[in-house]
Design a protein around this nucleic acid. Structure first.
Lengths: 113, 113
DNA sequence: CATCTCCACAACTAAAGTGTTGTACAACGT
DNA sequence: ACGTTGTACAACACTTTAGTTGTGGAGATG
């Protein structure tokens, strides 16, 4: 689906807001950990060496953005990924970063050669 | 290219930092405007109703991230897109947002029906 | 040379976000 | 019934960031 051009201000804000959700390392790591399947807040905060409160807050952000789902089971709350598309985004970002690194390396080689 | 799992903290930070660059409406709009081709700081700040200084700062952020290129011609500085992949990212984000809206709409229809 | 235009840097203010601490509440086990 | 566990909320300090204002410097123009 092509983007409209010029992009309306509202849409620009919407897009930016979505990017902002992914603009925190802890949230990236939470998403990554959830690729293994749903997990509780405690499991996640343990796995990432984060405080329970901090993990909970970040999970809430991801859930509010519609990327995660919540499921309460007794005392615990299980979070799971509901928007698998975020991983495609992350991979694209990684690819772009890697391409940049390669370009830099070529430059360095060009200088030192 | 598949992402490593578990993701190293360093990579998580790198990815997050890259998302952060796109997490501002003004920068999204600057990128969008540059789809028409390279433009000077003045042209861009005029087109987006931004101050010259503000546009300049955001352009510097985008250029530092390797998304834009700079070209000086006499008195003016032309910026251009060098990393076309950012638009694929934006489109994916738009798609995800739209899918969410659709899901919400279906929910609403389900309630009101 | 004088002046004007275009751009970037620096300092400042205001706002937003992150992580911590303390706490409240619900569900579980004994 | 009581203490414990698991989660979320609120208040706080701290950091980061956006936007403005003021300014300096490079290049054009007269």
């Amino acid at each position: 689906m092509p983007l409209p051009h010029p992009i309306p201000e509202d849409l620009a804000e919407l897009v930016a807001r979505r990017f902002r959700v992914l603009a925190e390392p802890m949230r990236i790591r939470l998403l990554d950990r959830l690729r293994e399947g749903e997990a509780t807040v405690g499991e996640l905060s343990d796995a990432l060496a984060a405080s329970q409160q901090n993990a909970s807050k970040h999970l809430a952000v991801l859930a509010d953005a519609g990327m995660l789902g919540r499921r309460k089971d007794g005392n615990r709350v299980y979070y799971r990924i509901v928007d698998e598309s975020v991983f495609a985004l992350c991979e694209q970002v990684c690819d772009a970063a890697q391409q940049q690194l390669c370009a830099l390396q070529e430059l360095v080689e060009g200088v030192t050669a």
